[in-house]
Amino acid sequence: MIDMTSVMCSIECPNCGRSAIEDNYYKSEEKYIYCYRCGYLYKRMTKDGVNFQVDKNKGYGHLSKKSGEGKAVFFNSQMTIDQLGEYTNEFYSENTSQEKSYLITYEDGVFRCLLGTPTDNFHLSFEEFKEKMIKKYGEDEFGLVPIEV
């Protein structure tokens, strides 16, 4: 059996420079990074405990849908017209809380909010986010930054 102990914290997104989440499984050396701002994804996984596979998606945006179960979609390419129609329909469906959901594209360093309103922390650089979290939660003895989307 593999022990799946991990440390999760906020880090600077390597794609957009804002706050991303790092989930580091330090015993198995697996690592996941996902950015709820630009849609960047990084996965370093192993199936046999020895050999690793790395998957990385640059990030072209993100759909955050809040409802009873919630949903996050990270775009690994530019959104097509068909996808925009699909996500727009999903955004306006009766089981989506439009006040808490948003659809963002990220291209050439520019964020565009197509639907909804992003979170208060969305537009903060990582350093601004880190300062806000330290003021709110205090400084961590290991220098880890708390997660808050």
Rank of each mutant, 00 (worst) to 15 (best):
L41W: 14
C13T: 02
H62R: 02
R44Y: 11
C13E: 02
K132R: 06
Y36C: 11
K100P: 02
K71A: 08
L114H: 12
S67P: 06
M45S: 12
I2H: 10
S10V: 02
T119V: 01
L115G: 03
Q53G: 05
K65V: 15
Y25C: 04
G61M: 08
E12H: 02
I147Y: 08
G143A: 07
T80K: 03
K71L: 12
L41E: 14
F91Q: 02
E94I: 00
I81Y: 15
K47D: 14
T46A: 04
G17M: 00
K132E: 04
M4R: 12
V145K: 04
I11C: 03
L41G: 09
D23V: 05
C38V: 11
E141V: 10
K136F: 04
C13I: 00
A20R: 04
R18L: 00
K136H: 08
E22P: 01
V54F: 03
Q98L: 03
T5V: 13
R44E: 13
V110A: 13
T119W: 08
Y34T: 14
K71H: 10
A20T: 01
G70T: 02
V54I: 12
L63S: 15
L41N: 14
N95H: 14
G39T: 06
S101V: 10
D48I: 12
I104G: 00
K65Y: 15
D48L: 08
E148P: 01
H62G: 01
A72E: 13
M45R: 10
N15Q: 04
I104Q: 00
C13W: 05
F122Q: 00
I33W: 10
Y36N: 15
M1L: 15
K58W: 02
V54K: 07
G116H: 14
C13A: 02
V50Q: 12
S64Y: 05
E12M: 04
S10D: 10
R44D: 08
S19N: 15
Y26E: 14
N51P: 11
E29D: 05
F111R: 05
T117G: 10
E30C: 15
E128W: 06
Y32S: 12
T105D: 05
D23H: 01
N95Y: 13
K135L: 13
T96M: 06
N15H: 01
E148Y: 00
E90W: 03
V149H: 08
E29A: 04
K43E: 14
V50L: 09
D23I: 04
D108Y: 13
R44C: 06
E139P: 04
N24P: 07
P118T: 01
E128R: 05
F91Y: 15
Y34A: 14
H123G: 15
K132F: 04
S19R: 01
K47S: 12
C113F: 01
A72T: 13
Y40G: 07
M4S: 12
P14T: 02
K135D: 08
N57Q: 13
E107C: 08
K31Y: 06
S19V: 12
F142V: 01
G109A: 12
L124R: 05
K130R: 07
V54D: 07
Y40F: 13
E29I: 00
V54H: 08
V145R: 03
G17I: 00
V50H: 11
C9T: 07
C35K: 10
V149Y: 12
M8V: 11
G109M: 11
F74H: 11
S28N: 03
V149W: 13
A20S: 11
